[in-house]
């Protein structure tokens, strides 16, 4: 079933995907630790388990394509190139954070990377993605707006309004549904009349496909194909990536609504060890090379935590700043 990796990407690129997934996992697990210590407060939604989606999809996009996401977006920001130090500092609420401590975990943003935000109202990013795609088209730019969202977002009005609009105006939007099967504690078949999410786009005549979101190469290939279609046709495209979060919805959620058996099935499909095995099997990397990557990622995350800890709090006077131009 699996594609031979060298047929897809050069070795260096393949290793980079592993590094990005490992860094994302390390970052998230470190966040959990910092949350337990009280250094990170507020809501914290971790991405562990879903790494193949952000990493595979980002690799399939051009650097000037826009990325928008929901509130489980640390990995998307970091994989796009956001400095882990500044992301961690944002989570700590420090002045050196990527949004100066005003955003927090759910509102990362870096326009220099075309990372156009984490949004915490479910479905809020749909119309904004459509608007960015329209701006790109209006200005004669070749960009796509890639809009990431969860399975819980597909029953919001903005989902349907935005799919209709993107197709009606022929806009270059790539919709990527990260279907982890649960909107907080509500399983997808208990919230969606048609639980096979990619089929819902037929009402808007938008082509769609379903992909294994635990397989970074499958996601990469699907997104690459989709973006080519979008660029060629100027029309939207829709991908449903099935995946699983290894943790609860947020740190406040012990995830008791999922069985241990179900969890084990998905744990066995963990994208990190599986992809590592593939890299080794196909002699793309040695165990020592992977160890070196892992050590490097751990050091990056440790440095991020240290940076966040040592950074200053924002001054009180900053509450009045950056509201109006």
């Amino acid at each position: 079933m699996q594609t031979r990796l060298r047929m897809v990407l050069p070795d260096q690129e393949l290793l980079k995907l592993y590094e990005q997934m490992f860094l994302s996992r390390e970052f998230e697990e470190s966040c959990a630790e910092q949350y337990a210590k009280g250094h990170i407060t507020g809501f914290l939604h971790l991405y562990s388990g879903q790494e193949a989606v952000a990493v595979g999809a980002t690799a399939g996009l051009h650097k000037d394509d826009y990325i928008l996401s929901a509130y489980r977006e640390h990995a998307q920001a970091i994989v796009r190139g956001a400095d882990p130090k500044r992301v961690m500092a944002e989570l700590f609420g420090k002045a050196t954070g990527i949004c100066k401590g005003k955003g927090g975990s759910m509102h990362l943003f870096d326009p220099s990377l075309n990372f156009m935000g984490g949004y915490a109202i479910v479905g809020g990013q749909f119309p904004i993605s459509v608007g960015l795609a329209f701006a790109a088209q209006y200005r004669g730019e070749e960009r796509i707006a890639a809009c990431f969202f969860g399975d819980g977002a597909v029953n919001q009005g903005t989902f349907h309004e935005s799919l209709n609009w993107a197709q009606l105006w022929h806009l270059p939007v790539l919709f990527v549904c990260e279907n982890n099967f649960y909107g907080i504690g509500t399983e997808v078949h208990r919230s969606s009349a048609l639980a096979s999410i990619h089929k819902r786009t037929c009402g808007y005549d938008i082509p769609s496909e379903k992909v294994d979101g635990m397989d970074v190469i499958a996601v990469y290939k699907a997104v690459k194909y989709a973006t080519e279609k979008v660029r060629e046709s100027g029309h939207p495209y829709f991908i449903e990536a099935t995946t699983y979060r290894f943790r609860g919805h947020s740190m406040a959620d012990p995830a008791k609504y999922r069985s241990a058996a179900e969890h084990e099935v998905w744990k066995a499909r963990d994208p990190l060890p599986n992809y590592a095995r593939q890299l080794l099997d196909e002699s793309i990397a040695t165990r020592e090379q992977l160890d070196a990557i892992e050590t490097r990622c751990r050091a990056t995350v440790e440095a991020a935590v240290k940076f966040a800890e040592e950074s200053p709090w924002p001054e009180d006077s900053t509450v009045w700043e950056d509201i109006y131009v």
């Binding site: 904004i128 459509v130 608007g131």
Partner: peptide, 8 residues
């Protein structure tokens, strides 16, 4: 929302 995105 489209206006927000277009303005951005």
């Amino acid at each position: 929302g489209v206006s927000v995105g277009a303005a951005m």
